[in-house]
């Protein structure tokens, strides 16, 4: 399992999805999965295979995904067919409160 800390980039083993970690729980192992398969370091060879039917909602470029506790947040930097999960629980899209353009 790759180390997860802010700035870490990871890729899906089973689809095109790539993410960057924005926030991660400290001193706590997190197994981030995409398409039901553990995500890999950004420079790892994808393993092949298909996203599991339970985790096939897809990821969207530029969306931020969070776990229920809000302790893990990742940004989708490349979209794919699989969807993100931790410990079998799907991550949710983080709702953004729109701010007016300020610069």
């Amino acid at each position: 399992m790759a180390e997860i800390k802010p700035g870490t980039r990871m890729r899906s083993a089973v689809c095109a999805t790539e993410v960057m970690v924005v926030a991660a729980p400290k001193d706590e192992g997190v197994e981030l999965a995409c398409g039901g398969a553990p995500m890999l370091a950004i420079d790892a060879e994808p393993g092949g295979g298909e996203p599991s039917p339970d985790f096939k909602e897809g990821t969207q470029l530029g969306k931020r995904y969070v776990n229920e506790a809000g302790s893990l947040e990742v940004l989708c930097t490349k979209p794919g067919e699989g969807s993100l999960s931790v410990g079998g629980t799907a991550l949710a899209i983080k709702g953004a409160k729109p701010l007016p353009a300020s610069d």
Binding site: G7, V22, L61, G62, K63, R64, P98, L99, S102
Partner: peptide
């Protein structure tokens, strides 16, 4: 540092939210 500027953007701007007609 990169973390400051990226945090600012991620925290205040929604990716791709501008309409195609928008110009600043």
């Amino acid at each position: 540092r990169h973390k400051h500027l990226v945090s600012y953007i991620l925290g205040s701007v929604e990716f791709g939210a501008a309409g195609e007609d928008e110009a600043t």
